[in-house]
């Protein structure tokens, strides 16, 4: 028995040493990481000034229905009768007929306010984030329509599947205190 005890205890000492070292390493790593850490968590968001309005937000989200949707900065809107974000490029008439609408899912609502102004709102349930209206509005109008990640849907994946394919690398992490980058506020 005593023969075996010697190597065993040597191994035990080695193990104890390694264990203490590992624990110390964990502690040190904890301290170092704590210094790097922020209490605040971060969430994904689209910087609307970097978005080029491709349709990948509609197709690449891990959710069956994208967490990216169109948002309207009303204070930037011209309230145009001929809204290029709402109407087909060359509408036959300025009415709400499906044949004149730009949005393939009919997610934009048009409401008359007073001559000659109309209000355009997004029906988020229908919006799929394809950015067609965003291109229309930005090309001809004030660019008040833009894409944002809606945090009631976003799961805040560690590796955002859309961020990975975004051609202009417009996806950024923002502090969860200010989870939106509204075009009229930045």
């Amino acid at each position: 028995m005593s023969d075996q005890n010697v190597p065993l205890s040597r191994r035990q000492i080695l193990r104890d040493g390694l264990w203490t070292a590992s624990l110390t390493a964990c502690g040190a790593a904890g301290a170092a990481l704590a210094a790097l850490s922020r209490r605040d968590s971060y969430v994904w968001q689209i910087n609307p000034h970097k978005c080029i309005g491709c349709d990948r937000c509609a197709t690449h989200c891990v959710l069956s229905e994208s967490a990216v949707k169109c948002v309207h900065a009303y204070s930037m809107c011209g309230y145009c009768d001929l809204c290029t974000g709402y109407f087909d490029p060359d509408p036959k008439s300025l009415d709400t007929g499906a044949e004149n609408q730009l949005c393939p899912t009919g997610a934009i609502r048009r409401r008359f306010i007073e001559e000659p102004y109309f209000e355009f709102t997004i029906d988020e349930k229908l919006c799929i984030g394809c950015a067609k209206c965003v291109v229309g509005c930005s090309a001809f109008g004030n660019g008040s329509l833009f894409l944002q990640i809606r945090h009631d849907r976003c799961l805040n994946c560690n590796e955002c599947a859309i961020a990975r394919v975004c051609p202009s690398q417009a996806f950024v992490r923002v502090p969860s205190r200010q989870p939106y980058l509204m075009k009229d506020q930045i």
């Binding site: 969430v43 900065a73 306010i113 209000e119 805040n156 939106y180």
Partner: peptide, 13 residues
């Protein structure tokens, strides 16, 4: 008419 502001549903706190 009051100009509305867009809603901002918050992320999980």
């Amino acid at each position: 008419y009051q100009i509305p502001t867009a809603t901002e549903p918050p992320p999980r706190m």
